[in-house]
Design a protein around this nucleic acid. Structure first.
Lengths: 325, 325
DNA sequence: CTGAAAGCGCTTACAG
DNA sequence: CTGAAAGCGCTTACAG
């Protein structure tokens, strides 16, 4: 540390000054700070972290950033983390199981203080156990996996689709489809919400009305086309998520069907794009940005209290009605 | 290093084995590896980096992840980086100048080996100089700033809007608007392309036809509404980027104007969303994912050759015609 | 082919 | 109030 000799003190003193310790006389501190500035000293956080066995890096592993929902969640996480003087080690799995493992291991080597993970479809709960065995706090995002007791941030999926379906039913629709998604707890829960709304209104569940598809625009597009072939022809659909709904809107447009008038569509997530789609999309809003911030907040809390019980955030879904339904 | 004693060798030997050095006899190496496995040894990359003064972390600073263009670019960058065994330190500025400075400094403290930056509007070229003075390689993404000689990855903006405008003109449109964007080199270049296509066809440039607005869906929506008030009424518009175009589509829908038939719209970027918008959007495709990968590749190259001349990637724009124009 | 020693840039008891 | 020393987990000359 050149600063030490320049200020004519020991390394220890410099370190103490930089940490703002009150132990050092103000005069000395000032001299040190001046020297540090003059020499363009830059703090080496890695060395410090190594010595004190700490880290202010959080790993965030996302499966699909192409989905604006996750982009908004990520932004929320990152914002909160930066606020707390943490920094984000970000990685994208693209639904690739092997890659996910590699990425997780890499984050470990890099000494992430914690990991926020939205697991790839088909992730073994065993993997989560392993990560925790590493001794690094894990928060599962959105896609809950088995009934582990890990920290979790997501939304009340069943309630969300329940609200959407209920609304459609109240509008008088009787042939209501369910579009997109294919597997995983999120899908199961959202489908369950749909079914329970049906049941409550005593509308019979019809499996042909649920059109499974990849949870993206393309999937939504195709799913809606399928749905249109069902007889009697459905008049509404609730969607697995917003991008599926957006894809469905495209399909309706192509068929010359006016969304909102001739056919009602409701999405799920409350992604910003929905405010200015054609037409503006009704959706179940779970506030993706806030979800991200909450996830980060939970992780921060966990870091503070490594041994407290399971932490959880469940976004309360709100029906956001616009043109499409 | 417990592994050393467990395998009954010195730390040096362990280190060498882990690096796959051929110096160590296979028998010894095997013993060391076995011990490492047994003890669940995990390599401490930070310690290694500290010692050898290296880093395999790249900082990526993005201004607006809400724009799917940047999400796709980021995914491209990250993929390429991971492939090369680097890891991504990601940060989001949200167009906040102060935050951008803080983030950059933070990446420095964390010893990023390089920084890929899409600068906030209004960033002083001086900031870029400073980062380079830090001795950390900088690659500017998309938004070129002044005529510094920094490494750069972006697209040929002027040519892109030229192609789009030319196409619209060839279709017979004479009142062609330019929608969205408000400042910066990207805006200037794209507007210039528009103007030069006009000029080539000897169509008079009309300032009332360029409707500046924030480069997002909302901005596009409003810009199109403005454009519709111009007399004689325009019949087409080229947009600053895809999300502006998507917003414009929403406005057209609201007014009951059929995009592609009654009014032509062309976007810019080639974001995936455009394939399934309502209607599918014609756009100037600059392949965001490939752009991201190229940016990362350039950074990797720079790290290899710190002193080679300026590195640059300029995406070749391709007109991608779909329903909307 | 392997080990002992020094050192990366910090922090933190421990003395004084 | 300040300094000397040890140590975080590695790597890398340097010996042998």
């Amino acid at each position: 540390m050149d600063v030490a000799s320049a200020a004519d003190v020991s390394k220890s003193t410099v370190s103490l000054v930089l940490q703002g310790s009150p132990l050092i006389r103000e005069e000395t501190a000032a001299r040190v700070r001046a020297a540090a500035n003059r020499l363009g000293y830059v703090y080496n956080r890695r060395a410090a972290d190594l010595r004190r066995q700490s880290s202010n890096t959080i790993g965030v592993v996302i499966n699909d950033l192409m989905n604006p929902f996750f982009a908004e969640v990520l932004v929320g996480i990152e914002r909160k983390l930066v606020e707390a003087d943490y920094i984000t080690l970000m990685a994208h799995t693209g639904e690739d199981l092997e890659l996910q493992e590699k990425l997780l291991r890499s984050m470990r080597e890099h000494h992430a203080a914690g990991i926020i993970l939205c697991p790839v479809f088909g992730t073994s709960p065993w993997l989560l156990k392993e990560v925790r065995a590493w001794g690094i706090p894990l928060l599962v995002l959105v896609r809950s996996l088995g009934k582990g007791t890990y920290d979790y941030a997501g939304s009340d999926n069943e309630r969300g689709t329940f609200l959407a379906t209920q609304h459609l039913l109240a509008q008088g629709h009787r042939q209501v489809g369910f579009l997109g998604g294919q597997t995983g707890a999120v899908f199961d829960d959202r489908l369950r919400g749909y079914r329970s709304a049906l049941k409550k209104r005593r509308v019979k569940y019809n499996a042909r009305l649920v059109c499974s598809a990849k949870p993206d625009r393309q999937g939504g597009y195709q799913a809606l086309l399928h749905l249109l072939d069902v007889q009697p022809r459905p008049t509404a659909a609730v969607c697995y998520n917003d991008i599926v709904a957006l894809g469905a809107l495209a399909a309706l447009g192509e068929r010359g069907i006016a969304a909102g008038q001739d056919f009602a569509i409701i999405g799920f997530d409350g992604v910003q794009d929905t405010a200015h789609s054609n037409p503006p999309l009704s959706t179940v809003d779970i506030r993706p940005g806030a979800l991200g911030e909450s996830a980060a907040a939970l992780m921060l809390k966990r870091l503070q209290h490594p041994n407290s019980g399971q932490l959880q955030y469940l976004a309360e879904p709100k029906l956001l009605l616009r043109q499409s339904g």
